[in-house]
Simulated assay, not measured.
Amino acid sequence: MKNQENIKVGISIGDLNGIGGEIILKTFEDQRILDFCTPILFASIKAASFLKKHFDSEIAFNSINDINRVIFGKFNVFNVWSQDVKIEFGKEDTKIGEYAVRSLESATKALKNDDIDVLVTAPINKHNIQSNKFNFPGHTDYLAQQLEGQSLMFMVTDFLRVGLLTDHVPVKEVSKHISKALIEEKINTIYTSLQKDFRINRPKIAVLGINPHTGDNGVIGNEDDEIMKPTLKSIKESGKLVFGPYAADSFFGSDNFKNFDAIIASYHDQGLIPFKTLSFGKGVNFTAGLNKIRTSPDHGTAYDIAGKGVADANSFKEAVFAAIQIFKNRKEFEELKNNA
């Protein structure tokens, strides 16, 4: 009999034609992980059995139609649908996108109802999930609408944490989105997350500039001088250890990032290119700022290798471990706060 206090990890299946199924199976083939967490895959036993057979996995499934029938210490498959699904690895398919959405919606409902403790999402195809009913650029935007709080894309590993001021925004529109209010909101979110989710009492945060060389005194744009610098000055005067803006081109190469608990980038590629270069295969995408915990691997569907049995499961495994640790940290943080 497994410990019924172990953490219930909900898993959305993602794009069935991608590598999600493979990395999920590989992660939980090590039975030791079931001693301290109970996985619940939101998909169907038919799809799970197909994946198990294709990848010659030895995982034993517990198929359930009622979330209350979860067996602790077993790999549970919650049946979101019952019909057969044609899985064709490497193919973009709008029908497969619909099943990815159904899995995500069901898992999110369970998360909101506390039927699962944390959510780990397998990669989706942002194009084939779009419909009249589901019109979000990705997981983060959908969960921000469904859950309470102010969401922030926070890429984390054991030696590097990178948050974003703007995430899935076209480069030509980045400066239009950055304002004093946005900078304050994101810094407050990341500051609170570092304290609550990572147990860092006095976080040190670096902020990267918007323009090359932070604008070179207005030669390459005025946004850093007019928006970023005065806002950071005000935040620092309030008592937070916030520094910058730093020129992004040399910040990571000089190892300056090692002096901070987190770095905030102004836009997607400014933060994710160095993050993935330094930590690819071990990085985790954590949606900070929400009242519930969601993590995912730092990669996509990888259609080019889907179904071949060669996908690296390390990032997904790290996402599971990160969700569990953040859950424990939050619980301890709340207990200490209540006892203070």
Rank of each mutant, 00 (worst) to 15 (best):
A247M: 00
V284E: 09
N217A: 10
A248N: 11
Y246F: 14
A181I: 09
D216C: 15
K172C: 10
A181N: 12
F251L: 00
S238T: 01
H299Q: 11
F251S: 01
D298Q: 01
G239I: 01
E226F: 13
I183H: 05
N256P: 10
L232M: 04
N285C: 12
K229C: 02
E237R: 14
V174C: 08
E226Y: 13
Y267T: 07
Q195T: 09
F243N: 00
I227G: 01
I187M: 03
S296L: 01
K180P: 03
V242N: 05
S179Q: 04
H268D: 11
R202E: 01
F198L: 11
S296Y: 05
K172E: 15
L232R: 02
N291M: 10
I190H: 12
G271Q: 03
K282C: 13
D225P: 12
S279Y: 13
F275G: 06
Y267D: 09
L194A: 02
V219P: 14
K204T: 01
V242H: 02
Q270W: 15
K204M: 07
A206Q: 03
T295Q: 06
E237P: 11
K172S: 13
I190Y: 06
H268S: 12
P297H: 08
A181T: 14
A247E: 01
K229E: 04
I187P: 07
N217R: 13
R202M: 00
I183V: 10
I263E: 03
L272D: 11
T189F: 02
S175V: 15
L241H: 10
A265M: 08
F251Y: 04
I187V: 01
I190T: 13
I293R: 13
K236W: 04
E226L: 12
S234A: 15
F275Q: 02
P230S: 05
D197V: 07
R199S: 15
P297G: 04
R199W: 14
N217C: 14
I264L: 01
E184D: 07
A302E: 03
P245V: 05
H177V: 11
